[in-house]
Write a protein that binds this DNA or RNA. Structure first.
Length: 820
DNA sequence: GTGCCTCGGGG
DNA sequence: GTGTACGAGGCAC
């Protein structure tokens, strides 16, 4: 007798049970109990596309390959007509017994001359299951089956059948935020092999604790003592087992907290087997480290911010303090971490660090809470788990969205490029966006327009798709894309896969925006997150088409997209000029113009007339009128130009775009100069004062009045000195330290000062104590530190680099006010 | 311009 | 694990 449960999947994986792959969906029932729904009726498969007229059915049916004394065989085959990059193909859907059989059979079949290609043979089994069975994490399902005992920490439900049920969403997954503090002496590298974890903080809605393994008197009620580091690690496991979180979050926990915990746990031979299936935390080291816990989502909120949210933030630094300040208007506790090891050794003021520790965990929790709507909407759009959404970039999210949609359109997905193909693609460059170079200066009454979602609407309206490119059905009367050097076209008869998908994303977003336009109820946050996720995804299609690792890569499609973009922006500029507006600046999808004698009514009439002629979903939007603004040109990279401008809104708030912050390894004098100049301009709007300030700094550098401490550059040694091929300044300095018998190795922070001379920089780089009488190279600090840090800012104000370097009395700088 | 290297996040 | 995915910017050549 079968029973029924209703549940939300959270993490999906599989295990081999009795020789069959069994999908495990860890999640919560609708009445909020942990459960693992197991389903073993899904079979692994891939597609084989035979060459024209080749018959391989019988050959494939009994195909087997033996590797390492293991037999991998085809279980059965089904035949389908499918669409593949714009054409109809007869395909064989080849089933195997185990997911692990697929790669072996795939590699063998690739050699078969009768086969054109093997497709979708690299879609991980659990993801394949989710796509084919329409399983979307965090949404509700009905399962029929029975509870059965399994080696799991939660009840296991063996399902005979699973189907979507209702439109509920798991709104409040249990989130537990973690943060560790470790012992690191001042000026030393973080060394998990050597130094212990000294405290661990947990923060959840209804649970806050800091565990620490030295005892001291404290009034902090959330502090709890243990006797050793190994007990601390055991406590870490115990808290997680007891709290039963769906999500464990941390800040840079992929790269720090969890790998550190793993190394320390290994030292004490403690298994971090916190997975609900008794599995251990898996640390995977690649270019970037990841920490995965089967069955519990590990959310590294830092990674999500950097990969997905960074574009919409003002801050250029992604440390917890900056991010918390922008998203929460809160800060980290102001403590000097350099003092932690001493506090620990002397057992004084440890509680200051406990409260710091808890606060970090709390900030991370709050940030995760704030971003959860965006994350969960991205999960619902792409159908990936939170873990995957957290670690994929936007191009990968686009790809997985396409992979999920492909079966609905009977499309077979193209393969990932081979390494040779990737190499070739990387060499391809093409023309980007059009930038109308502004005349640097200050202007009044600036009207701003932009094409709403320019590239997505171009892709949709012009049917830009690898599958509609240069179709034979339109070859005779083709209308070419506006490319200067190529004649390409897109089908006029059939809408392509990608244009269909992208228009669907755009219209879904428009509908949501319409709904939330004038409502600010409790549903607003979720719907706003949803429209934002739809926008992020739609905006990433163009980049995806030109991304070297994309399955649906098409250089022609990417080229056509920017070509149409250039066409439309030039078109609106021409039309604006014809209507009597003066164009100040234009970049990719936006134009800035002055009203002169025109009125706001003229502006509206203008945008109406432009919109009447635009195809499909394309639309020119009036963004607003600004009392004054400053513009500057600043070209960078292949994808066009970065916006560099400043506007003052009617409310008096200043909007500065396009300034990057200085790096950590810059000298203090450069950091301070940039900060101060920005401060003067932003707060006092006094460019003369900023100019005089920087002149003073340059002058002080020339006369060596800036103290030596401010010109020290800090750079970390990454490997053994002998392992360096290219010896930068810090390597040369490290070598000299070593020659003096001082032990320097990887991780050492090297301080150096560039001194006078005509030799290359590394030969002039000295230790601060080797420098006498402030004999640093003033011109190096002026030209390579101060100027790059402030140059762009002064360009914006109409000053030239030469003006900053001018030694004589300052030249008059009249007439840069070009407004009316 | 190319190629190698560093940093970021974390303590 | 049906794997093998950082990306921008600076210095030396």
């Amino acid at each position: 007798m079968a029973s029924i449960i209703y549940f939300f999947p959270i993490d999906v994986t599989y295990k081999i049970i009795d020789g069959k792959p069994a999908i495990h969906m860890f999640g919560r029932t609708l009445d909020n109990k942990q459960v693992c729904v197991i389903y073993d009726k899904f079979e692994p498969y891939f597609y084989a596309i035979p060459k024209k007229n080749a018959d391989i059915y019988d050959e494939l049916k009994n195909f087997k390959v033996i590797r390492n004394e293991q037999e991998h065989s085809v279980a059965r085959i089904e035949q389908y007509k499918k669409k593949y990059l714009g054409r109809e193909v007869a395909t064989l859907k080849v089933f195997t017994k185990l997911p692990f059989d697929v790669p072996f059979i795939r590699e063998e079949l690739k050699k078969n001359p009768k086969i054109e290609s093997i497709n979708e043979a690299d879609i991980l089994f659990a993801r394949r299951f989710m796509i084919d069975n329409n399983i979307i994490p965090l949404t509700s399902y009905k399962a029929e089956g029975n509870f059965q005992s399994q080696k799991l920490k939660v009840p296991a439900f063996i399902a005979e059948k699973i189907e979507p049920f209702g439109d509920e969403t798991l709104l409040a997954p249990k989130v537990l935020s973690i943060d560790i503090e470790t012992y690191t002496p001042p000026y030393k590298e973080i060394e998990p092999e050597k130094n212990p974890i000294i405290m661990v903080a947990f923060y959840a809605k209804d649970f806050q604790k800091v565990f620490v393994w030295k005892r001291f008197t404290t009034s902090l009620e959330y502090v709890e003592f243990v006797d050793s580091e190994s007990e601390l690690i055991s406590k870490f496991k115990e808290v997680i087992e007891n709290y039963k979180p769906d999500i464990i979050t941390g800040y840079f926990s992929d790269g720090f907290d969890l790998p550190y915990l793993k190394i320390r746990a290994d030292k004490y031979k403690i298994k971090l087997d916190i997975g609900l299936d008794f599995s251990e935390i898996k640390i995977a080291k690649g270019k970037s480290t990841t920490a995965e816990i089967t069955s519990i989502i590990h959310l590294d909120i830092f990674k999500f911010i950097k990969k997905i949210v960074s574009g919409t933030l003002e801050t250029n630094a992604y440390d917890l303090n900056s991010v918390a300040f922008e998203l929460l208007d809160e800060k980290k506790h102001d403590v000097d971490l350099g003092e932690l090891s001493k506090a620990w050794d002397t057992k004084t003021e440890i509680d200051k660090f406990c409260s710091y520790n808890l606060n970090d965990a709390r900030l991370c929790y709050k940030i995760a809470e704030k971003l959860m709507p965006t994350i969960s909407e991205m999960v619902k759009i792409t159908g990936l788990t939170i873990y995957d959404v957290n670690r994929m970039g936007l191009s990968q999210l686009v790809e997985w969205y396409l992979l999920r949609q492909a079966p609905n359109f009977n499309e077979i997905a193209p393969n990932k490029p081979t390494s040779e193909e990737t190499f070739k693609r990387k060499l391809q460059t093409y023309k980007g966006a059009f930038v109308f170079e502004p005349k640097p200066g200050l202007y009044n009454n600036v009207a701003v327009f932009d094409y709403r979602s320019l590239y997505p609407t171009i892709i949709g309206s012009h049917n830009i798709c690898p599958g509609t490119l240069n179709c034979s059905c339109c070859a005779e009367q083709a209308k070419f894309a506006p490319l200067e050097d190529k004649k390409i076209w897109f089908c006029k008869k059939k809408k392509g896969f990608i244009p269909t998908i992208i228009e669907d994303l755009i219209t879904r977003r428009m509908r949501i925006k319409e709904i939330i336009k004038d409502q600010k109820d409790e549903k607003f946050a979720v719907l706003d997150a949803r429209q934002n996720s739809l926008k992020l995804l739609a905006n990433s299609f163009y980049g995806y088409l030109g991304f070297f690792a994309a399955r649906w890569y098409s250089l022609e499609c990417a080229q056509a997209t920017t070509a149409f973009g250039r066409y439309y922006i030039k078109d609106v500029i021409a039309k604006a000029e014809k209507s009597g507006f003066k164009i100040l600046y234009g970049d990719t999808d936006s134009i800035f113009l002055t009203l002169d004698s025109k009125t706001i009514d003229d502006v509206k009439k203008f945008s109406e007339s432009v919109n009447q002629e635009l195809p499909g979903l394309m639309e020119l939007e009036f963004k607003g009128l600004y009392p004054s603004g400053i513009f500057v040109s600043a070209k960078v990279g292949a994808y066009g130009a970065k916006k560099k401008y400043a506007l003052i809104s009617e409310e008096g708030s200043l909007k500065i775009k396009g300034f990057e912050s200085v790096r950590r390894n810059w000298s203090l004098v450069a950091k301070e100069a940039q900060e101060k100049v920005l401060e003067i301009i932003l707060k006092e709007q006094d460019s003369k004062k900023a100019f005089d300030y920087i002149k003073k700094i340059i002058d002080e550098l020339r006369n060596r009045k800036i103290p030596l401490e401010k010109v020290i550059i800090h750079t970390q040694l990454q490997k053994e000195i002998s392992d360096y091929d290219a010896k930068g300044p810090h390597v040369a300095v490290a070598q000299r330290l070593k020659n003096q018998g001082i032990n320097v190795g990887p991780g050492a922070m090297i301080q150096f000062v560039v001194t006078q001379g005509s030799d290359i920089i590394r030969n002039r780089s000295k230790l601060p104590e080797e420098v006498e009488n402030n004999e640093y190279d003033s011109s190096y600090y002026i030209n390579n530190q101060i100027i790059p840090a402030v140059e762009k800012i002064f360009e914006l104000l109409g000053y030239k680099k030469e003006d900053l370097l001018e030694t004589k009395e300052q030249t008059k700088l009249g007439g840069f006010f070009n407004g009316n």
